[in-house]
Simulated scan of single mutants.
Amino acid sequence: MPNIVSPKQIAASLTELWSPRVVGEVDDSYIKVAKVHGSLTWHSHENEDEMFLVLKGRLRIELEGSAVELGEGEMFIVPKGVRHNPVAEDECQIMLIERKSTLHTGTELTEKTRSLTEQLRPV
């Protein structure tokens, strides 16, 4: 029986900011959604790329020396090893595709860092 999910609806229902939730998996990757506002933290993922897709709102991904601005329906892939900092001036809903080994904020630990166990909680 097919398992149909709406990433946009799930992201809209979240009450915690910067707390990604796993909504699916494909091979060795998780599909996650999150509601974000403000700045996360500068970090990198040494061995994993990270895909951001804006479901609602706008997201700026600061990179060392530049930044990308994403609108609704746009995506950007942060290459492995690249330091970045996601920022949302207003509340924004995003979908992420990351390898299962990807740590939320890389080796940087802050009050916004979420463990895999927290990300796998039911929505």
Rank of each mutant, 00 (worst) to 15 (best):
74 E>N: 08
93 Q>M: 15
97 I>W: 07
74 E>M: 10
72 E>Y: 12
102 T>D: 04
84 H>Y: 08
106 G>C: 06
91 E>K: 05
104 H>P: 08
80 K>Y: 04
98 E>N: 04
83 R>D: 14
97 I>H: 04
74 E>C: 07
92 C>L: 08
81 G>E: 06
99 R>W: 00
89 E>L: 11
86 P>M: 11
100 K>Y: 00
76 F>H: 07
96 L>Y: 07
102 T>W: 05
94 I>E: 02
96 L>R: 03
88 A>F: 04
105 T>S: 13
93 Q>L: 15
94 I>G: 05
77 I>N: 08
79 P>S: 10
83 R>S: 15
101 S>N: 05
91 E>Q: 14
104 H>G: 07
103 L>V: 13
95 M>I: 10
83 R>N: 15
101 S>Q: 08
83 R>A: 14
87 V>M: 11
106 G>F: 03
80 K>D: 05
76 F>Q: 04
88 A>Q: 09
104 H>E: 03
90 D>M: 14
94 I>F: 02
99 R>Q: 11
97 I>D: 07
80 K>E: 09
79 P>D: 05
75 M>V: 13
75 M>G: 15
98 E>M: 09
103 L>F: 12
84 H>P: 06
91 E>P: 10
81 G>N: 06
80 K>C: 03
99 R>D: 09
85 N>M: 14
79 P>E: 02
100 K>C: 00
80 K>T: 05
101 S>E: 10
98 E>W: 06
89 E>V: 12
82 V>C: 09
89 E>N: 13
90 D>S: 15
95 M>N: 01
72 E>N: 09
84 H>D: 11
78 V>M: 02
75 M>P: 04
80 K>H: 05
91 E>F: 08
85 N>G: 09
87 V>P: 04
88 A>H: 04
79 P>K: 07
97 I>C: 06
73 G>C: 11
87 V>Y: 08
98 E>I: 03
79 P>M: 02
84 H>L: 04
94 I>C: 10
75 M>R: 12
104 H>A: 05
74 E>Y: 08
93 Q>W: 14
86 P>L: 09
72 E>L: 01
104 H>C: 01
84 H>W: 05
105 T>D: 15
83 R>Y: 13
77 I>Q: 06
